[in-house]
């Protein structure tokens, strides 16, 4: 069989991601689509460390490490410079975790989205501040344990709907993706590369240590998140929604939750509550998928 993705690797092995890191798959897949005429900026996030310490880097692309809340504005600045220097073709990407996107970086994200700056904004979402040791973020789902939402007081707030927030900016392209479906992500990026303006890519990237899951289950979890409807995978092009990974018969959320230690304290009624939250959200999205 022929590989479904290009063989070229723009990410070297030897990086510092944990075993089974979803963010590693997210980056590796994305780079295959983005290609070598691409520049990155990272805020503080797992990838700050994964990339490697001075004087090393696992990326074979220019990369500017930046402050936590500055991703989108920094990417806008790089893009403006490239335009001023007559190198408008280069793809400029901000690559941030969920904390840097949902929480501390949301202002800059909103600013760049509103200006419709011609950049990619990637959020690899592992649903908590993993790099600092698993503290809850606005992306942490209802019911989850983190070090700041201990079992006794597990997270009672639902995950912030960052995709809806971005959609409210009427950006030309946005998509969700799961590391379980690399071809889907690849296709979206290849398409989005040709679209001028702001592009938001939200990738679910399971985190074995943070989710208290087995490292070998990363892809399985990323797949179950989609199959249960917890993380629907779709794109929005010029306001038009399309579900790219269809889930005609959704699996119960329990199948996803039970593989993760961060949910193991949940009682039957808590699981039912999560199922309710997911069903509601899915129904809402389904309407948009049907136009």
């Amino acid at each position: 069989m022929k590989p479904t993705l290009p063989l070229d690797e723009l990410m070297s092995p030897g990086h510092l991601a944990c075993q089974g890191c979803g963010a590693g798959i997210a980056m590796r897949t994305s780079l295959k689509a983005l290609g070598h005429d691409t520049m990155f900026t990272f805020p503080a996030c797992c990838w700050t460390v994964i990339d490697g310490p001075f004087p090393y880097s696992c990326l074979e692309l220019p990369l500017l490490h930046m402050a936590f809340e500055a991703t989108a504005a920094t990417a806008s600045g790089i893009k403006a410079a490239m335009r001023a220097l007559g190198k408008d073709k280069t793809t400029i990407c901000g690559w941030a975790g969920d904390g840097g996107t949902f929480d501390i970086g949301i202002q800059a994200l909103s600013g760049a989205a509103e200006r419709n700056d011609d950049i990619f904004y990637f959020c690899y979402d592992n649903e908590a501040y993993m790099n600092t040791g698993i503290q809850r973020s606005g992306a942490t789902p209802y019911g989850a344990w983190t070090t700041t939402t201990p079992v006794k007081h597990f997270k009672k707030e639902v995950k912030k709907s960052i995709d809806d927030i971005v959609a409210a900016h009427k950006v030309p392209y946005q998509a969700t993706a799961s590391v379980a479906y690399p071809e889907d992500l690849y296709k979206k990026l290849v398409k989005a590369k040709e679209i001028r303006g702001f592009k938001f890519i939200h990738i679910l990237a399971p985190c074995p240590p943070g989710w208290k899951a087995r490292p070998e289950d990363t892809v399985k979890l990323a797949r179950l998140a989609v199959q249960t409807g917890i993380f629907p995978v779709y794109e929005v092009e010029a306001g038009k929604y399309a579900q790219t990974m269809k889930t005609p018969s959704r699996k119960p959320v329990l199948e996803y939750l039970k593989l993760q230690g961060r949910f193991k304290h949940l009682k039957e009624e808590d699981v039912a509550e999560i199922q309710k939250i997911v069903d509601l959200r899915y129904a809402e999205l389904e309407k948009r998928f049907q136009g």
Binding site: M39, M66, A70, T74, A81, A108
Partner: peptide
Amino acid sequence: AACIGASSAG
């Protein structure tokens, strides 16, 4: 932040 990005890009 944008100045830093721009300056980094030359």
